[in-house]
Write a protein that binds this DNA or RNA. Structure first.
Lengths: 188, 188
DNA sequence: GACAAAAATGACATTAATGACAATTTTATC
DNA sequence: GATAAAATTGTCATTAATGTCATTTTTGTC
């Protein structure tokens, strides 16, 4: 399921610091690409098109649009495991950052701006489900893919999927499997 | 979604006590950062950029922008304690956010952009000393004041001071004492 | 299905840009 | 210190974009 992020006129207006009426006029004049819903004719702006528009007009790009598709954040308590995952991902050309605790993981969400994170469900002092909840309820982050990697029993992995994980993987895992999952998640 | 507050030239002119024509000239000369709308070429000035400009030129900072510099993040496991602290701080006119776990605390460091944080040293799964280390080693955050609030023995508080806390306070604490410490930390 | 939140709409009021020029302030020179 | 030159800022009228308002309808959410 490829989810395309779109904006309403109201949202675009906030980002641009103008009235939504103005956004509509820009759309009508063809300066900003958008499409219409059949009902009332609501406008929807694809995130891609919006960013293009922002760049064309030298607008500041909001942080949440800056995420690069190759950026990954590895949230993992064990240094060995983290390095192992990072090695595989880097070999695939990804820009990898590692967080060994909840606080730095949270801080890196904005400093590294990952498009995807791999999440160890059970880190000492970090509730993986809490992280999932936080990400899914935060509009700035909710489009981030989350790959849960865990040694927990299957039931926990099931629950992770229900609570917002994009994919899950059991530990120990196969490197090839890891690469496949990553590729799949980032391709849509 | 990040709410981007922006000013028009007219608004900026009022704050600076000059004609809007002058604001435009400052923008044209590159003294004041701004971007242009595609329509009439209206200028929009991001609030952040405007405050930077005001500070650079020793303009008095209007109150509504001061709020920006009185943001506090309360990192505290117990909801009751967090609410109590937040209540006191809000009464002092601060803009308070609360984080109950390490991950959201880290995430809020960038979304709330606090000038100060109050930190519970011993939260389940959050190593307060680790947080101090992270903040002090991160150029983006190192100017943030950290008030450690803890029920730990004095030795731990001493250590917190050594490791970068701006001030410490024992639990239970006195509201008046809290206000005093906060005022002191924010005044320099 | 019901309710709240948000978008479209048209008419109208505000406000910003612009260029030219006047007034004021700063800087340089003697 | 006085004076001229240069730079900055304010004023004005015009044009066009943007904001506002109240209302209607759709969409999102539970």
């Amino acid at each position: 399921m490829s989810e395309v992020r779109v904006l309403t006129t109201g949202e675009a207006a906030k980002y641009c610091g103008v009235n939504f009426r103005t956004i509509i006029r820009w759309i009508e004049r063809g300066r900003l690409k958008a499409y219409k819903l059949p009902g009332r004719g609501d406008h929807r702006i694809r995130e891609d098109d919006f960013v293009v528009f922002l760049k064309e007009n030298d607008f500041p790009i909001p942080e949440e649009f800056e995420a690069q598709s190759s950026r990954v954040l590895v949230v993992e308590d064990s240094k060995e495991m983290a390095s192992a995952i990072a090695r595989v991902l880097r070999r695939e050309g990804m820009d990898v950052a590692i967080a060994h605790d909840g606080f730095s993981a949270g801080a890196m969400m904005s400093s590294h701006k990952p498009r995807m994170i791999t999440l160890d469900l059970k880190m000492p002092g970090l509730d993986g489900f809490g992280v999932l909840e936080f990400i899914r309820n935060n509009s700035e982050y909710k489009s981030i893919k989350v790959l849960v990697i865990s040694a927990e029993p299957p039931a926990a992995l099931e629950r992770a999927l229900v609570e917002g994980a994009s994919a899950v993987m059991e530990k120990p895992f196969d490197n090839i499997e890891l690469v496949e999952k990553i590729q799949e998640l980032l391709s849509n």
